[in-house]
């Protein structure tokens, strides 16, 4: 019977979202420890569900077990929503999440069986971010606060647009990060925040000689065949600045338009804080030579930032009204009551 969203569904969605974040972390551990092909077969591991849990097998097989558990949770969430959730679009969202986790499982299998081709591995990483965001959205839209929320604030086109741009910027950054990780370019630039002692690293073949001299003599790292990994790595760093600019702009716009709204300002301020923490984790990843914990935390925090940006955009759409937008155009700074 679909009369009202069960409160239990929200709690279940929250648990599933938390488990999904754990899954993202476990997946990050697989790459951080270089264990991606420790188990050569799929879907079984060495032909069994219980392989010897040693070395890289421990990370890869644990990732598979956690992924299986999250897939079961997602299935249960989808079935529960389909049975009891009155809003069609929420049911559809749960179905999309379920399909996404199945696609993600297939991508995981493919990347093992095809020996980690970059395109498949990056897609696996990119879909992971989307899946976690979907699970967070399900947790948000089934919450009592969402259900009780009213569109009391005027919607502002600039905040809406910047919010969407911020989401796009963050997602591009997660893809760049995945590209960097799966091409082995994580230490293609071994110093931070500078790049080979400069604002931007060299991108020419002549520069490659300097790069390799610094790598082998100063950092005792293997030489590079081409400058490509340096370019990929630097793209991730440069785009981080774009992400920071987008998120800060979102905060400024939110404060200007909705300075009294603790929810909007709090979410956008949280996004800025998370991006700053992420920059620090990125630095730690370099300074510790890709030590497993900071590197993996960097991956997981990237997921959290994306989810935060998306949740901000969605809640903004929910808690503001386009009807007031036209009227607000003449009075750009809202002094409306705080919205909870």
């Amino acid at each position: 019977m679909r009369t009202a969203t069960p409160r239990g569904l929200h709690r279940f969605a929250v648990v599933a979202a938390c488990c999904t974040l754990g899954l993202v972390f476990a997946g990050g551990l697989v790459t951080s420890t270089g264990s991606g092909l420790a188990v050569p077969d799929w879907p079984l591991s060495y032909g069994t569900l219980n392989p010897p849990m040693v070395g890289g097998i421990r990370y890869e097989h644990s990732h598979r077990l956690i992924a299986g558990s999250v897939a079961l949770l997602t299935t249960a969430l989808m079935l529960w929503a389909w049975r009891r959730e009155p809003r069609r679009w929420v049911r559809a969202l749960a179905l999309v999440a379920w399909v996404t986790v199945l696609v993600q499982a297939l991508l995981g299998g493919l990347t093992v069986l095809l020996l980690l081709p970059t395109a498949v591995s990056v897609t696996h990483g990119g879909v992971a971010q989307v899946f976690f965001t979907l699970m967070c959205l399900l947790a948000v839209v089934t919450s009592p606060r969402w259900l009780a929320a009213r569109a009391a604030e005027p919607s502002h086109a600039d905040v809406r647009a910047i919010g969407i741009v911020a989401v796009a910027c963050v997602y591009v950054q997660t893809l760049l990060g995945a590209w960097m990780r799966h091409t082995g370019a994580g230490l293609a630039i071994p110093d931070f925040p500078l790049s080979y002692g400069r604002v931007a690293p060299p991108f020419t073949s002549a520069g490659l000689d300097m790069v390799n001299a610094v790598r082998t003599r100063t950092y005792v790292l293997h030489y590079l065949d081409s400058i490509g990994p340096v370019a990929i790595h630097f793209a991730h760093r440069a785009w981080a600045a774009v992400v920071l600019a987008a998120i800060v702009t979102l905060l400024v716009a939110t404060v200007r338009r909705h300075g009294q709204s603790r929810l909007f300002v709090g979410l956008s301020a949280m996004a800025v804080g998370l991006v700053c923490a992420q920059a620090l984790l990125g630095g730690l990843t370099i300074w510790t030579r890709k030590s497993v914990i900071p590197t993996t935390a960097h991956v997981a925090l990237g997921s959290v930032i994306l989810a935060t940006a998306v949740v901000h955009a969605v809640i903004y759409r929910r808690c503001t009204t386009l009807e007031v937008d036209r009227a607000a155009a003449t009075a750009p700074v809202s002094r409306g009551a705080a919205h909870a």
């Binding site: 092909l37 420790a38 188990v39 050569p40 077969d41 060495y46 392989p51 010897p52 040693v54 097998i57 020996l115």
Partner: peptide, 20 residues
Amino acid sequence: TTHNVHALPEENKPFNTSMP
């Protein structure tokens, strides 16, 4: 103990073989 041999050639065919 179990090993896997993961070869990363570019000109030859890559392979990942378990040797348990």
